[in-house]
Amino acid sequence: MQAQTCVRRHPLRDGTLVEFDAAASFDELLAALARLLDEEAHAFAGPNLIIDVGSRVLGTDQLLDLEALIRRELGPRVLQIVNGEADDILREDGAGDGGAPASLRDGGFPPAAPAEPAAGRRDRPAVGRSEAVILRRTVRSGQRVTCDGSIVIIGDVNPGAEVIATGDVVVLGSLRGMAHAGARGRIDAQVIALRLEPVQIRIGPCIGRRPDQPPGRSLRPEVARVLDGTIVVEPLAGRRRRPAREPGSDRGEPIG
């Protein structure tokens, strides 16, 4: 057993679940995980690695540190960060009904035709989950934030940055990089931003890209969602729709 440590390892059918102790600091956890990976790397078989961080919220740097550690020690793994779902995951895994957690791919993009998500996960409302990860910072070029569930970013997402969530992506600022909502295949996920000017938006398996002739600046909050297989963007509080692939005539109008 792993006494004296603040990380606990549970084997899963195609991977490993690691539970973080609620009382420990992030640095302690990272060090303990590094030790565990060093001593028991062989026990981390299978492609999936799920880390239950409890109720804590990880910052971008912490997420990146965690990801870097795992990549260094184990090589490519499908990394999922979850909030307090260890018991559910172990129960699902043990049930043996093919409900092993589907993957949020490490490379930032899920298979084009993702496996059917586990029963129960699909029905979870996109917004209104009790635990959304909140990041208060600017996500800069070269940084990637991944999150199981929905993520709210209080700040901007710059070109070259990536935000990947299995639920919704909400940016209280300008979204100018890449956002992927519903990264495990949920087609009802949404991307919402105060200024929605992304290079690319992905929702579930769909990809929408910024038009080659960029439209004027977005001056009001907008939401991107999937409609009939394509990503459309519309004002958050309005009904007019425009396809994400073409400049919309309603772009750049003053609010009101």
Binding site: P76, R105, G107, F109, V199, Q200, I207, R209, R210, D212
Partner: peptide
């Protein structure tokens, strides 16, 4: 080249076999 909005996979994805 004005192609930044079309990127889905990249060189590392190819090398890593994704």
């Amino acid at each position: 080249l004005g192609l930044e909005n079309r990127i889905v996979y990249d060189l590392v994805d190819v090398v890593e076999g994704f």
